[in-house]
């Protein structure tokens, strides 16, 4: 009896080791679409959509129940013949651009898209000008005869 139990346990552990990570990632198991190509499309879409509950995970990674519902919804949209864009749009009309992990280019998002390159360019130009000026300032007057003599003395006799 014990041996059977430990054998079963070992088998379970082996299974858990093989499948552990994905099993832990999702508490609810998704029903997968029968068509593997369509399922791949669904997963690609899931990865672009932000989970509203956890906010910094995609619905593909999140184990929130809402994420599960949204994953199934995307599959359902594809199954009734939606294109990828239509399926994404379906959720955007309900939850806004917020669900997109990659925000669209719009007047309201220009600062978001152009801000980092502008800061990089301004900072780069600033740094370039600063270092060039510093170099131009560099040439200093050579030591005078008296200074050279003093330096020689100091090098010869550290006590001076």
């Amino acid at each position: 009896m014990n041996r059977i139990r430990s054998a079963a346990l070992a088998a379970l552990m082996a299974l858990a080791a093989l499948t552990g990570a994905p099993a832990l990632a999702q508490t609810t198991i998704d029903e997968v679409l029968p068509d593997p190509a369509m399922e791949q499309r669904a997963i690609a879409i899931h990865k672009q959509l932000r989970c509203l509950v956890c906010q910094n995970q995609s619905i593909h990674e999140s184990n929130a129940t809402l994420a599960h519902d949204l994953r199934m919804l995307v599959r359902e949209r594809l199954a009734v013949g939606d294109t990828d864009e239509q399926a994404i749009q379906y959720l955007v009309t309900r939850y806004g651009d917020w669900v997109l992990l990659k925000p669209p280019m719009k007047p309201e998002t220009l600062a978001l898209w152009l801000g980092p390159p502008i800061i990089l360019i301004v900072g780069g130009v600033g740094a370039f000008v600063y270092f060039r000026r510093a170099r131009r300032r560099a040439p200093e007057a050579p030591l005078s005869e008296a200074e050279q003599q003093r330096a020689r003395r100091m090098l010869a006799d550290p006590a001076d």
Partner: peptide, 12 residues
Amino acid sequence: GGRVGIDFGVYG
């Protein structure tokens, strides 16, 4: 089923 909630944009 939570479907109308999704239509209302409910998330919490």
